[in-house]
Nucleic acid binder design. Sequence first.
DNA 1: GTCCAGAAGATTATGCATATTTTTTTCATT
DNA 2: AATGAAAAAAATATGCATAATCTTCTGGAC
Lengths: 230, 230
Amino acid sequence: MAKASEKTTLSTTVYQKLRNAIIQGEFRPGAKMRIESLADSYGVGSNAVREALSRLSAERLVERYEHRGFAVPAIALEDWRILVRTRCWLETKALEEAMAHRTESWEEAIVLALHRLSRFRSDKEDERAGWEDAHRNFHRALLANCGSPWLLEFCDVLADHATRYVFVSHAYGNKKRQGFSEHEALMKAVLHGTSSHACDLLQSHYMKTFESVESLFKGGILEELSDVSN
Amino acid sequence: MAKASEKTTLSTTVYQKLRNAIIQGEFRPGAKMRIESLADSYGVGSNAVREALSRLSAERLVERYEHRGFAVPAIALEDWRILVRTRCWLETKALEEAMAHRTESWEEAIVLALHRLSRFRSDKEDERAGWEDAHRNFHRALLANCGSPWLLEFCDVLADHATRYVFVSHAYGNKKRQGFSEHEALMKAVLHGTSSHACDLLQSHYMKTFESVESLFKGGILEELSDVSN
DNA sequence: GTCCAGAAGATTATGCATATTTTTTTCATT
DNA sequence: AATGAAAAAAATATGCATAATCTTCTGGAC
């Protein structure tokens, strides 16, 4: 009976659904997002969709074209490179700060997040969504007490975009590696090692993800989704 | 006859106007933003306003309360501290990168931006808006070729919020110092000095701004605008 | 016959007036 | 004072009218 809409507004619901759908690669990069058809498929008025798209455009999860509506952002190898690079910069800084101000509850949250991550296998199709969620939470936990909500949010935005790249490339054949041991090593370094070592591990972790998507670009599989097409 | 609306959409126009107004402290922090009255005063429909507010809420320039509308964010000393700290982190990184990949056109743009800044005096009321603009452009020019549009955008968001704090405190009596020589020294360090020296100058530049606003909080002048009131 | 310019038509975004919830205020009752 | 129902205000949602853009079609020049 009790619907979620008790508290949230229609446009927020649409916003969340669209957001997830985009991040999980359910829309083809570059595709046009027609307001009417979205409104139909979600069973809401066009205004709610417009508002949701407006919000998403502010986080660059959709592109806005004046008088011409909205579109899913295209993907491109160069953008992916810059995205990962920026992410490394910001998360490295955040991790340094977090480690410099460690607290017990922060450490405990990391241990817990890793444990929860261990319940899923990223290579099983039916556990993938759960794994992705737990994975995200683990990385968030590492940075959680960096002392700046701003920095956390920026990292979150970048992570969202990175997740989209991974999902899209996955949809086009990239089998994700099972990276549990990597995360375990990362946690140990964060809890017991030096800050610079932990940051190195974090960076190389992201570089592996970078390369696995990069190889798909080089293989030409993602080419059709690049900027030119739409 | 040729209006600006030839190209842009109504909601974008409202978005820009609201954005400027908020940043320049024309709305009292914590104040409620009634959609109807905004629509009236801008002479547009409520839809345009709603869409504009939605976009602004994504960059945290307005706060969104489900079913209860929007409000200007409150200000608080602790938030100001974290804002400046985060800004130092990000701009420092951006400046390092920019200096590591210096180009002639980048250097020229900085020289030009400083020259333009020199035309205004921040302590003259009628030049203040122009100064603020030129000042912003100068700092942007320093970071411009850091190699990451993401990082630039994040720095921009933080700068917008910082500007609001400065404007608000200015409206409540803080006489802005005339910082031209500071900027000149900064430019010289960026063009000819080491990266770490330039970053030091940048940081202390921001710290001075931090302290000048901080003193107003300590003096209690901004207290009424803090979180509690609304 | 091919190519391009321009106009009619279709499609889509935008803006507005109106209706529906939801929240907030008011005010009588306990 | 505290509670709660009714009224007022405000935010949210919808549907329609308008304006802009995109497509398709036509006709002429080469």
